[in-house]
């Protein structure tokens, strides 16, 4: 799953740094991800994992790191 998230970040995150070398807990906003980019990451995650983020999860902290996104996707795919 981490690899899929990294690929989505690479395609949609508009990060200033190499996604491959980012630690899983690195702050993606610090790494250059804008609010608009995070929306595209969110939509791509929904498509990739066939999930829909509920409204209360549409906030910055859910998408702030690779680990945070993994936790969120796991929570929704196990539900």
């Amino acid at each position: 799953m981490i690899e899929k998230i990294r690929r989505i970040l690479k395609d949609h995150g508009r990060l200033a740094k190499e996604v491959e070398s980012l630690p899983e807990d690195a702050d993606l906003y610090q790494a250059g991800m804008t609010s608009h980019a995070s929306v595209n990451v969110m939509l791509a995650l929904e498509g990739e994992f066939d999930i829909e983020f509920p409204d209360h999860m549409l906030k910055r902290s859910v998408f702030e790191s690779i680990a945070a996104m993994r936790d969120a996707v796991q929570q929704l795919t196990q539900a």
Binding site: S38, V39, M42, R60
Partner: peptide, 14 residues
């Protein structure tokens, strides 16, 4: 829309 909910939450938080 839904993307907007996220943009609004972000705008408010920041």
């Amino acid at each position: 829309g839904r993307a907007g909910k996220m943009l609004a939450a972000s705008q408010k938080e920041l």
